[in-house]
C-alpha cells in the first residue's frame, strides 16, 4: 500500500481542488478544478489496484463529462454566468450559515462513525488480478443483465437530450 506521505499529498491536492471548485467565482475555473480533482482520484485508483477504472475515470469523467460542462458554459456564455451571484434574498440570508452548520454536522457524523468503527482490520487482502481482461470477464459473466440495462439507460438519456435540445421550433412559433 501507499506510504502515508504521498497519500497525504494526493489527498491535500484533491481536497484543495474540490474547495477551489466550490469557491471559484468563474464557472470555467470551477470546471478546471474539477478536472484536477478527477485526475488526483484517478491516481488513487491506480494505487488501489484499479488501472482500468483509473483510465475510465480520466477518459469519461475528466474527458467527456468536464468537456460537456465546458461546452455548456461556453454555449451559455461565461460572461453571462459570471453575473450569477450567490447572493440570496435578505430573508433567506441565514440559509448560508445553516448550510455550513449542516455540512459540519455531516462531517462530524462521518468522523464519529470512523472513530467508532475501525474498518481497517488487521490483514490486507492479497492483490487480485484487476486487469481489463479480468474486469471484462466479471462484467460480462456475472453482471451481464445490469450491463444491458445500462444500454437502455443510455438510450433513454439520448432521447431525453434530443427532445430537450429541440425546443427551437416552439420558440419560433411563440415569437
Amino acid at each position: 500500500m501507499i506510504h502515508p506521505i504521498p497519500f497525504t499529498l494526493l489527498a491535500a491536492v484533491a481536497v484543495a481542488a474540490a474547495l477551489g471548485m466550490l469557491t471559484s467565482r468563474n464557472a470555467v475555473h470551477s470546471a478546471l478544478y474539477l478536472v484536477l480533482n478527477f485526475m488526483t482520484v484517478a491516481v488513487l485508483y491506480l494505487v488501489l489496484n484499479a488501472p482500468f477504472i483509473a483510465m475510465v475515470q480520466i477518459t469519461v469523467y475528466a474527458g467527456a463529462i468536464v468537456v460537456l460542462f465546458l461546452f455548456v458554459i461556453m454555449l451559455l456564455g461565461a460572461d453571462l454566468l459570471r453575473g450569477v451571484t450567490d447572493e440570496v434574498r435578505g430573508s433567506e440570508r441565514y440559509h448560508r450559515y445553516l448550510a455550513v452548520l449542516l455540512a459540519l454536522v455531516l462531517l462530524g457524523v462521518f468522523g464519529y462513525l470512523l472513530l467508532q468503527n475501525n474498518f481497517g482490520g488487521t490483514t490486507l487482502s492479497p492483490t487480485i488480478d484487476a486487469s481489463p481482461q479480468a474486469l471484462g470477464i466479471t462484467l460480462f459473466q456475472d453482471y451481464l443483465f445490469p450491463f444491458e440495462v445500462t444500454g437502455v439507460l443510455l438510450l433513454a438519456s439520448i432521447i431525453g437530450v434530443v427532445i430537450f435540445g429541440h425546443t427551437r421550433k416552439r420558440g419560433k412559433e411563440n415569437a
Binding site: M1, I2, H3, P4, F7, A11, A14, V15, A18, N37, L44, L48, L107, F110, G111, L114, N118, F119, G120, G121, L124
Partner: peptide
C-alpha cells in the same frame, strides 16, 4: 501504511 480508514476519511471530506 495507509489503510482503508484513510480512504474513508478522504471520501467523507470530498
Amino acid at each position: 501504511a495507509v489503510d482503508i480508514n484513510w480512504y474513508i476519511a478522504l471520501s467523507g471530506i470530498l
